[in-house]
Amino acid sequence: MSLMDRIKDCLGTDLIEISEFRGDVCVEIPKNRVIEAMTSLKEKGGFDFLSDVFGVDNIDLYAAKAKKAKKKKKGEEEEEEPKKQGPPPPRFEVIYLLLSLKTNERLQVRVRVPEDSMDVPSVTGIWKAATWPEREAFDMYGFKFKGHPNLRRLLMWDEFKDHPLRKDYPLEGKGEERHLNYDTV
């Protein structure tokens, strides 16, 4: 049984999309079923090791695509039919990289997260190793991992307001400075 089939078996109805690119398998699961899907991937699928958790901000990608589509339409107005526009894809994605230590297989699991509800169930209960990567993803993108034991910033200092890896955050920052304060340092 190939890896694809086994994953399909394992996830059942929780599977939204599965694809393979040069031997790397990538699946998408719905946000509200993260815990169930991950548990079954760990117990039935044998993915016992969590390598990393991180986020993706797709804001520019979708903006660029929309622009391209518009340009195309202007060029060949009559030939092309107006395409059906679905709802805009959610802006953020959380990506989990899993590894099976027994069979040495890897799997990428992605969860789409819309901008207006940044809650994501935490997988710290399944893999203890998720604590720091989840804190980093929270720090950089602002995902609120529900059930995380200690969701504080990991890289930036505690008083920092923004989430710097979001694409609309300016590269040189918004003038945040950190000053010496003998009482709190």
């Binding site: 930036m156 950190r178 010496l180």
Partner: peptide, 10 residues
Amino acid sequence: TKKMVPVLKR
């Protein structure tokens, strides 16, 4: 890094 600034100053 800016996070390191208070440490250096101290």
